[in-house]
Every structure is written in structure tokens, then in C-alpha cells.
Design a binder for these strands. Sequence first.
DNA 1: CGACACTTTGACTGTAGTCAATGTAAGTGG
DNA 2: CCACTTACATTGACTACAGTCAAAGTGTCG
Lengths: 249, 249
Amino acid sequence: MSGRANSVDCKVCVIRHTGICAALTAEELDQLSRIAQVRVFKPGQVITRQADTPDFFASIVSGIVLLIETASDGRRQIVGLLFPPDFVGRPFGSRSSYAAVAASELSLCCFPYPTFGRFLNTHAGLHRRLLEHTLDELDAARKWMFLLGRKSAGERVASFLLLAARRATSFGCANNGLSNFARFSLPMTRSDIADCLGLTNETVSREITRLRRREVIEIRDNRNVVVPDLRALRLVAGDDPDSLSGMVN
Amino acid sequence: MSGRANSVDCKVCVIRHTGICAALTAEELDQLSRIAQVRVFKPGQVITRQADTPDFFASIVSGIVLLIETASDGRRQIVGLLFPPDFVGRPFGSRSSYAAVAASELSLCCFPYPTFGRFLNTHAGLHRRLLEHTLDELDAARKWMFLLGRKSAGERVASFLLLAARRATSFGCANNGLSNFARFSLPMTRSDIADCLGLTNETVSREITRLRRREVIEIRDNRNVVVPDLRALRLVAGDDPDSLSGMVN
DNA sequence: CGACACTTTGACTGTAGTCAATGTAAGTGG
DNA sequence: CCACTTACATTGACTACAGTCAAAGTGTCG
């Protein structure tokens, strides 16, 4: 079902200062580390099945998680794209209405129920951080609703590439933070991207080819993307110039 | 900008036992009432403008709130449909990326910043309740993403009517909780419904007419809807039989 | 009554979906 | 090493669903 559990040293964790645990003192962190377990997953591996009740809450340490809703007739929609230090599951537990799947090599820092809930109730700072993070996710989901409800296929694909560019570090390869240039590698198939954007894989493919022909992007090996001018891509994405668009802020 | 503030008696409030304040003891409630202000809004009145930073956090006491995202070219998407005892805004404040508009006669119980944040930090139960509520909203938003990305126009309209039926009490008129029958009145124009579903008002109108011709629904006065057989409507909506579909659980 | 806002209906268009064939790359086993 | 398989991507031809534009219908309010 998942990789083996490792003992945890939170002090040297890569998300120590960005994750929800950033709200904790060194001492509190020590307590937390005693209930934490790191688990690793392979690409495509299922973390939680739709309608399942998982037995842990987790922070993403590295890798990407897809939240996927599948209807009984097979239609799929990816309803969430999670990066470090996002979290998977609900802090007090509950049945999940969508599946969580690893989209890459993944490592999760898992906190079992109900221990984590008790810990949370006695640490207001952590509680608050979790609330703020959830509110951010909600804002991001609502932004994505605009994309799904109102954007054209071309705008959707461009928006997705912008999201990938912004998350380049998680997507693999490096890019230059503030520059107008980006280079990254896509971890998902055209079908996955389509399920994310409410399109078909054919349409995604066509729109990518069109962007390539217009020289807004360059692609090597179907995976490695170069965006010479992010502003041009942003223009195609149809975002308001001031807003920081994307599924995750 | 809004209705006048009234003094508050939380003990007799209609959402006393359903709202986030249900987490509080009588004594705590008394403290909270001292910082609360009730404000009333008329249909169509703007509560928060897009990109504004409101100065309060609020619970909906009665009425309906729409969260609306508008692009610079005029495209609109309703990204949230809020009912009592949902809340509007963020507990610790922040710039809003969408507008909040009253869809009906509305009364809000408002808590000013930063007072409410301080109150929250010292009341773990309230904090937790807020977190759970936000997680529910996030789940609901993700469910709506499936509708926007994958459902046909007919399924979308049927899903909306189901949502309205479930929220009948808020939408006006009564219905019979567990029965298979529903009667309610729609508080929104066809255009608003379209903006909710990622469609045009013409398409919404056509699909409603089609449902009427198929005798899945009856309509009087363009507003009063009767659903003789909710299961039939559910079938048209294309929901999995087991899931409690809709924007709000 | 007339003005206005909203709804419905119709004719036509266009975007994205469907179905099908071909192309490409990575991995397997003889 | 090379055929072969498999999975994924691209391209093309055609279709259909929903959008657009326009006109007529309905209801409400001053």
C-alpha cells in the first residue's frame, strides 16, 4: 500500500520552515516528530482511494499529489494538484470524496489519527496555520473554477503551463525565480493535463502544438518545456494582469 | 455601503446551534456578542468588492451570498454560493480575490478585525469548528469543479436544481426534508444560474424548458419550482447514486 | 399604459469532442 | 541487436453541443 516508514528528524526536514510545522518551537517539533512517519510512494501509486477513510493526515515533503474524482461512467476530473508543503487529508479525519494519487516520486510526512487531532488542539499556532493554509487552498480552488467554467481550451492550456512554470522546482528542473524565462519538465501525461483542465487529451495536444507553432513555448522530448517569454504566455492565458493566477497561489 | 448595525443577542440567534458559535459556552458567547454587529443587505448589494480588503469577518444569519469572479473582459463565474451558517471573508483578514454580493435579503453577523482573530486564538473549539467548516467548503468547491469540467449542460442545470432543492429553506418556501418531493423558489436570474454553471443564460433556459417538457420539473412564474420526483432529477444530474452531490454538502 | 428587465425561442456558427489512423519513444524478450 | 509490444502523442476528418446573435414573449413596476 505504501513505502516503509522511517524515523523522523524534523530539525533537518526540507519543509521545516515552510510547512505547517513552521508554527512550532524546537521543543514542540520534537513532540511532533515522535508521532510522525515518513512514507514514500512511486509515481501512479494510490495514497487514498475515493470514498476511503484514510488513517493519517500528511504533509507533502517532496513530490506532487493529484486529487482525482472519477464518476461511475468513467469521466475523470483532477480537482487538486498538491505540492510541498501542502497537506493531504483532513486533520481530524473523515471519508474522502476523491482519490489521492502520487504523480511523481513522493514522500509524505504522516501523522496518524487521532493522535494528531489531540496535538493540534493544544497548539493554537499550528491550528491557525492549518486554517490559513486551507483558506488559501479554497481560494485557489475557486480560481480554478473560473478556468473550468469560463476559459477557452487555449487559455486553459496556457494557464496550466504557467502553473507548471511557477511550480518548476516541484515539477523538476530549475528555473530562475524572478526572470521572465522558464524551463521545466512536465510530470503528467496529456491525458492527466486534460483531466485537470476539463478537456480531452487530443485538445490539449492540439493547443500545445499551436503554442509551439506560435513560438510561445518550445518542447523537447514531449516533457521538457522552455518558455522564453512568460509575459507572452500570460497574455495567452487570459489572466488579469494583476492576479497571481493558478490552482495554487 | 451596508445596513445599519444592531446590537446583538446571540442567545436567541437562529444560527446559535448550527453556526461556528455553536462551539462556544454561554459565557464565551456573551464575550463574542460584544464584538458582533448585525448588518443587513438588500438583494444585489455588494458586501465586498473584488480585490478589496474587507474590515470584518461574518457569519450568514439569513439569506444567500454569491462569490463572483469577474475577468477584465467581462466574463463572470460564480465561485461560491453561501447559505447560513456559512461565513464570508477570512477570520484573520486578507485581500479578497472575488466579490461577495447579497443574492437575497441578507443579514450578516459581523466580527471586526483584528479583534476576532484574538478571540479565535484563545478559543480552540471555535478555531477547530472554523477549520472543519473551511475543509467542508473546500470539498464542496472540488465537487463543483467536477461539474464545471465534466458535466453536460443538462446535467449541470439538473445539479443546480438539486442544490436549490436541498437548500430550499434558504431559497424560500418550504419543502419536506426527507421526502422525494420538493417545492422551492429560485432566488437567482437565469444569467446568475448560468454564471454559476459556466453556461449562458440561453442554454440554461433551454435546459429548463427541456426538463419541463420531460415533466421532471414544473415551473410557475419563472421562479417557483416543483420537483415531483427528486430521484428522476438526480438521474438527469448524472451524480453517482451514493454521493451527496452539490456545491455545499 | 409604457418602460424595463428578464426569459424564451429560433437560426446559425464555432469550439471542442469523437473516432480513427499514424507517429514516436521506451522497454522487453528472442 | 533488432523486431515487437506497449503507452503516449499527434494529426485529420467529421460531429455535436453549447455559444452567439437576434427577435419575440412575459412579467413587474412606476
